[in-house]
Amino acid sequence: MEHPILFISLILEKLGLPIPHGPIGHGFLEKLCEPYMTYTWFVMIFLVVVGKLTLSNIEMIPGKGQNFWELLIGGMYDFFDANMGRELTEKLFPMIATFALYIAVGNLIGLIPGFMSPTSSINTTLALTAIVWVTHHIIGIRAHGAAYIKHFLGPIPVLIPLMLPIELISNIARLLSLSIRLFGNIMAKETLLGILFMLAGAYFAPLPIMLLGVLVSLVQAMVFVLLTVVYFGQAQEHAH
């Protein structure tokens, strides 16, 4: 298959930096120049610059930019508040909201020709999921102390040898399903778009898939955040 044209990789190559020819590079510098790394930085810079441009002078009567952010952040805050309680929301809102914005922008950027979704690499999604997974255990341990293990023992003491492995397996399954779902959806979108561009790009063949891609990108970002919030809330509440 033909290589997709990635602008940042081309620019870095012109600057004389080593660009890996496969999805994964070898040396340290080559690993830093992998497309999903450079596009992650691009998304980070994009979010910082847009935030700076729209929010540099906050006013009582919001303008267009400030209005957009107030709607978005306010909506997210209310949603987290309803699902995991005020205390956790105040503590963890910056982290989850950053995940939401990063994943949404990272998914959508892949629809523009010449860009690539950083979330279409399993490395990115697994890193995000690992942070969520470790954090929800930390929340559980901080809320319950050693009694957190009751979450994994099931309701009846006699059934503990049976329930413990089952609960552990279904807990680790969260790690797998959360990361692979985001990765699989976005990579499928990217690959399908690439193939359609190659086959019949001149006849607008990728157009319907791009429409679906917008939907998939937003829905997957929302699903990731929703499940994160649900897991945090479950770790916080008492064992059944």
């Binding site: 399903s177 829905v219 929302m222 699903v223 929703l226």
Partner: peptide
């Protein structure tokens, strides 16, 4: 969206648990 979020991952979680 809330339906998708709550029930859209049923299949994947089921398969992931079996494979683990």
């Amino acid at each position: 969206v809330s339906l998708l979020g709550n029930y859209g991952h049923i299949g994947f979680t089921f398969v992931a648990a079996i494979f683990i």
